[in-house]
Design a protein around this nucleic acid. Structure first.
Lengths: 196, 196
DNA sequence: GCCATAACAGAACAAACATTCTTTAACAAC
DNA sequence: GTTGTTAAAGAATGTTTGTTCTGTTATGGC
């Protein structure tokens, strides 16, 4: 009868995700991951596989734990520009509560570091950006039903890009004020555009 | 009489910059740098110092070779929104000519990878962002002299953020089209804002 | 309590790594 | 051609690294 696992994926992956999120992939050693997760190297290898497998396992975990809750406000019927503004304010407040500089966005970080050289990571980044973009697209559509579909898609991609830029910036600022300023500017620019 | 150097800084640094720009710091080994520069490890250590010193030397080189020329269009008297548009279009065309996906922006990449954990890198990032922001600020001021100083500063910071997001995106796209689309959207949003 | 089985701890391994060191080479003055 | 000097090549060094391996432990059925 086998011994029940002390370190199931549900324990290892969240801890590893926080480590990769803050330090990135190449600057994180297996030793760092062992310390962060509390599991031994054999436990990690047995349950997940190697370092790269563990890194790749963090993306769905990030989607479930961070991204989906973040976008929930945009699921409501009729959610519009206020929902986008709420998304930004909520995420900025969470970052502020957690302490700035923060880790930014796991996916945005990976987009810069590993995605250009790892197709599996690039696929995760692509899926994540699509997910964000679709959420913003729905909200923009609600906010301005007369907006052309092509322009709505482009604006949504732009909002996604700006969000990613914001989270990257949050890795280097000690105050939430510039983050909020940028969030407000984006919303104001969108509002001006949609009210034409 | 000492032997003249075969590998002066002016030879080593540009080649190393391209390597760090594409692969980042931690994913680049000294062996990679030796191959990229053509210099031996002793030549690199003698002329520059170690890996970190070489990385840090790349930022001023990047400013001189890439950033200053990019911003030159905004130095002209009265340069306004068209100069900002020109900046984006020129940089996108260069990236396209070089082949996409591209390396993005060395500083934006470093902002994500090494700046959060290396004060010297963070200082370089901060200086770079200030430089961009001041250029955009001047252009926005020219475009709309009645714009409040605080709002001008905030919009300029927003343009800087969006530019960084764009270069990060360019690391993962194979076509310049979405880059151009984003550039156009930004300019249009700014134009709409400034014409109020 | 014994057993078979899988989980876990951490040592071992081979390779990769940044940096230092030793030897060789290039140079101009003489 | 010799000399003194520094530059360069690449081997050597000690450390770090990701992964594998061996021994120990925990487990439930019997």
């Amino acid at each position: 009868m086998p011994r029940p696992r002390l370190f199931p994926r549900e324990t290892i992956i969240p801890a590893a995700m926080r480590q990769f999120w803050r330090r990135g992939y190449h600057a994180t050693s297996m030793e760092d991951l062992i310390l962060a997760t509390g599991a031994s190297r054999a436990a990690i290898y047995e349950e997940i596989g190697g370092k790269r497998a563990l890194h790749l396992a963090c993306f769905p975990a990030y989607q479930a734990a961070i991204v989906s809750p973040a976008l929930r406000g945009m699921d409501a019927p009729g959610a519009g520009l206020e929902a986008i503004a709420f998304y930004f304010e909520t995420q900025i407040s969470l970052a502020e509560a957690e302490g700035l500089p923060g880790p930014g966005c796991l996916v945005a970080n990976a987009a810069t570091e590993t995605a250009p050289h790892d197709l599996a990571v690039a696929t995760c980044v692509e899926a994540h950006n699509s997910c964000l973009q679709h959420a913003f697209e729905r909200a923009l559509g609600n906010a301005c039903p007369s907006l052309g579909r092509a322009e709505r898609t482009d604006l949504a991609a732009f909002v996604t890009l700006t969000a990613q830029g914001l989270w990257s910036m949050s890795r280097g600022v000690e105050s939430a004020k510039p983050l909020r300023t940028h969030g407000h500017i984006l919303i104001n620019l969108l509002r001006a555009r949609l009210s034409k």
